[in-house]
């Protein structure tokens, strides 16, 4: 018995060794099979705090790379923004902006929906036929517009059809103004391209520049003020040299006209009657 005790005492470190190894392997196997032993992992608060502190220090070493990445990202986003902004400008100029101008201009007017059943752009005097007539409330001298801008003026009406004198007709003369400065003139067309018309008598002192938007002036009883017509495409002297000749790029694409609106101005007849009286009295 004493020998056994001596043996144990002499080799007690063996037991400690075996014990410690047993603990180690218990930890090892428990960790692999059992997730609850979070205490012996980096999930406990001491190790967490130490790693936090270390991260506070080492975090600075990555700042340079992070900075470079951010600059790179910034440049990319800047480019993207630029292209999106450009697209937005184009989009608003093309449709929604004009649409908005038109909606503002058309407040207080009646609109009749009509379809183009006959159309031409190649003659010197073009006419458009609509599938709506007197039965639908269309009268002559009413304005005709489309989604993008001015089309023309109703000339003749039958019971179910009407004929329109579009801008692309030598008889057409629509009172227009420069939207920015309100100087006005008459929109004429003298053959040639269906994309361009002319304003012949823009005063010398009027203010405008290339690209300015031309809208209807509202001076005639036909169109309300502010219906988009086109943009100033070219500036030249008129034939008599007393005024400017503006070439206007029309918003309306007459070559593929289909869906149009006829504008009926409330009180149009009253205005016309008054103007007739004026003519009579001056005679």
């Amino acid at each position: 018995m004493k020998n056994l005790l001596n043996f144990f005492l002499k080799y007690n470190y063996w037991f400690l060794f075996v014990l410690l190894e047993a603990i180690s392997f218990t930890l090892l196997f428990r960790f692999n099979s059992y997730q609850g032993s979070a205490f012996f992992t980096s999930a406990n608060w001491v190790t967490g705090a130490v790693y936090d502190m270390a991260d506070n220090v080492t975090g600075y070493f990555h700042l340079r790379t992070i900075n470079e990445e951010l600059v790179q990202k910034n440049v990319e986003l800047e480019l993207q923004l630029e292209s999106i902004r450009k697209a937005l400008t184009e989009a608003t100029e093309d449709s929604s902006g004009i649409e908005r101008i038109k909606q503002e201009a058309l407040a207080g007017y009646d609109l009749f929906k009509a379809n183009v059943v006959n159309n031409s752009v190649t003659h010197a005097d073009n006419y458009i036929t609509l599938d709506k007539g007197e039965a639908d409330g269309i009268r002559s001298e009413m304005g005709v517009v489309t989604g993008s801008g001015v089309v023309g003026i109703v000339y003749l009406t039958s019971r179910h059809y009407s004929i329109v004198i579009p801008v692309l007709n030598s008889k057409s003369s629509i009172s227009c103004k420069i939207k920015r400065s309100d100087y006005f003139g008459f929109l004429k067309w003298d053959g040639g391209s269906s994309e361009f018309a002319f304003i012949k008598d823009m005063p010398r002192h009027s203010l405008f520049s290339l690209g300015d938007t031309i809208v209807t002036s509202g001076h005639s009883a036909v169109f309300p003020s502010g219906i988009p017509v086109g943009t100033v495409d070219n500036i030249a002297d008129s034939y008599d040299g007393l005024s400017y000749l503006l070439r206007v790029k029309l918003f309306t694409d007459f070559a593929r006209l289909n869906d149009v609106r006829v504008i009926a101005q409330k009180g149009q007849e009253e205005q016309l009657e008054l103007e007739k009286q004026l003519v009579k009295t001056t005679k």
């Binding site: 603990i23 218990t26 930890l27």
Partner: peptide, 17 residues
């Protein structure tokens, strides 16, 4: 060392040996 490296028991066993 194990606690920090998420390897409970591995370093402890080796160091003890």
């Amino acid at each position: 060392v194990d606690v920090f490296s998420n390897t409970p028991g591995v370093n402890a066993a080796a160091a003890t040996v």
